[in-house]
Structure formats: C-alpha cells, structure tokens
C-alpha cells in the first residue's frame, strides 16, 4: 500500500529521490517538493487505484504520506 501510494506521488515529482526515500511522516508538499496543485491529481489517482471516493473535505487533512495511507486503509477495510 505504502509503495503504491509513493508510486502515484512520484509521477508528480521532479525530485524522484526525495519520493523514493519518503517515510510515512513525510509531508507530501513540504518534504517531497510536490507542487501543491498536484494534490488533486494524486487524490484522483488514488481513487482510481483503490476504487474509492475521497471526500473533498479530506483534501486539507491528508498532509503526510502516512495520512493518505491510513485514510485509504480505512476506506477499503
């Protein structure tokens, strides 16, 4: 799951090494240097990958890779 999420994030990164070495507590925008507008793309990719729907209100709450992972796990369990 963690690896699958990183693979999605990596698509939107210029610095692939940052993403490859990311930890659950890594902040997607601040630590992985992802353009903040790309969050909507990452969410859409996550929805397609895991066949879930992410509520729009969650967008501002999913700060770290771990936040995203936990949220997806809660939706598919």
């Amino acid at each position: 799951m963690f690896e699958k999420i990183l693979k999605i994030i990596e698509k939107y990164s210029f610095n692939k090494d940052l993403v490859k070495n990311a930890k659950p507590e890594s902040k997607i925008i601040a630590d992985l240097n992802i353009n903040s507008t790309r969050i909507v793309d990452i969410i859409l990719d996550v929805e397609e990958e895991f066949n879930i729907e992410v509520e729009d209100t969650m967008l501002e709450k999913l700060i770290t890779v771990g936040d995203l992972q936990k949220y997806v796990e809660s939706k598919i369990s």
Partner: peptide
C-alpha cells in the same frame, strides 16, 4: 457537461 468537473485535474 456530464457533471464531472472534479475530474478535470490540476493541469
């Protein structure tokens, strides 16, 4: 047109 504006993506 089909009401899927949220799928337009950031780019």
């Amino acid at each position: 047109s089909q009401g899927s504006v949220r799928k337009l993506r950031s780019h």
